[in-house]
Nucleic acid binder design. Structure first.
Lengths: 244, 244
DNA sequence: AAGTGGTCTAGACCACCTG
DNA sequence: AGGTGGTCTAGACCACTTT
């Protein structure tokens, strides 16, 4: 294994180590679920002292890219992004069980990205995008309508698959079929009165309040991969924050 | 200065130091804005090594209780909690300037705390609480209706002040008049259709969507100090999160 | 028993800020 | 110039997990 470290010499060593480790995760040399080399091995390989190596690892743990287990090792974290909506919506049935909602693709087409979407995904004006509309349901009750936009270039493989075979976990599909791994995301929450179309899809009364979540998902290389806007009934919504 | 450290001997030293430092901040021996002793002094006073003292300080910096400045020192952070609503609501006028909204106390009374409030504030059943209703406005436009509950015992001094003299920053008043300093908070967001009373106060249409923010504020000693529920028009609301 | 991360030491030298 | 936090070293010993 070659331990090249160009980077910027002005940066502290622990920063350069952090970047080097992050690059290995991004480059799939260290894969999700795998153990990374032990601290002792990293010390030897990079010629840094244990404290410095640990500080670099600390940062990646804080970033959510690594996970430590005393006595076992340090592992690349498996991301479960499909479940982030659990932060916002109560995806539970009456018994209080938490379940993965079903997913139904209502539409999939290839269009020129609207300028707002192109800007978010950093695509040149006029670039093509895959647009999908997806309905999420729990026990056949609609919970969320999602409008999803993907850069056509990276995700062209999706156009060859029957939408009935997409399954319930889209990000797993991105990874398998397109080699695109979602590493982080930004979300913006707003609320509005539901319009006629979404009222029909969500089977709620016209004008009822809905929560709108806009999400921009990024790969390990910090390039935007996906933009989506999701709407769900406000009475199914609850979000908790701690402020310091 | 006595450096007693009872605590739990099974805890790592850096944890015990963290707790000791946190206690000094809670006990106002280290006051907001003040520099704490230098790392070298803490090393000498506690007989720990520099790395261990730094780790304890690191934790309090991450908790937002301390702030470090290279070359200057480490300081107890001044909290500006009154501005947390800026996270959620657009407190801006047409020119985009960010302003502190005006505040108007609509009601202040002393009542037996309802059981939900008593539970949140960890008060015994039947304990008395101060209940206030406050309206926040920007350029005379209502933005937020707040229902606030305080343990009567700690906040009795508020009952002696004319509500017109409360000013726009409630947490500063708690500190000045009652010696109660808010150190952290938890907030839960939900949304609903506005009821008749709040529609009138907020001057919006009946049934329009409103965001509901419930906040429980804690002191440095981690005791709950205040519970409040705020409602504002959904179209003034926007919240942004990063997910990793 | 062997191997892993967790805690802790006792310094050194550097970068930055203040008087 | 003197003092502060920032970085880094080169270990030691402990707690926990796995074989």
């Amino acid at each position: 294994m070659s331990y090249s470290m160009p980077h910027d010499d002005r940066l502290p060593l622990y920063q350069r180590l952090r970047d080097e480790f992050a690059a290995r995760i991004a480059g799939q040399q260290w894969r999700p679920g795998d153990a990374i080399p032990t601290e002792a091995e990293l010390v030897k390989a990079f010629g840094a002292s244990i404290g410095t190596v640990r500080k670099a690892i600390d940062m990646l743990v804080a970033d959510g890219m690594l996970e430590r287990f005393q006595g076992r090792g340090t592992f690349v974290r498996r991301k479960r992004f499909e479940s982030t909506m659990f932060r916002f919506f109560r995806f539970q049935n009456e018994a209080g069980e938490r379940r993965i909602p079903q997913a139904r693709i209502l539409r999939r087409e290839c269009v020129v990205a609207p300028s707002a979407v192109a800007a978010a995904l950093r695509l040149p004006a006029g670039a093509e995008a895959i647009q999908m509309t997806r309905l999420r349901l729990l026990d056949d009750t609609p919970l969320l309508v999602e409008s999803i936009w993907l850069p056509r270039e990276r995700f062209a493989a999706l156009l060859d698959i029957d939408t009935h075979d997409f399954g319930d976990l889209l990000y797993a599909l991105y990874e398998e079929r397109c080699g695109q791994v979602v590493a982080s995301a930004e979300e913006t929450l707003t609320a509005e009165s539901v319009d006629a179309m979404h009222a029909r899809l969500l089977q709620i009364q016209a004008g009822a309040p809905v929560i709108v979540v806009e999400r921009l998902a990024y790969g390990y290389d910090r390039q935007p991969l996906e933009w989506r806007r999701s709407r769900g009934p406000a009475d199914q919504f609850r979000y908790h924050v701690e402020i310091r």
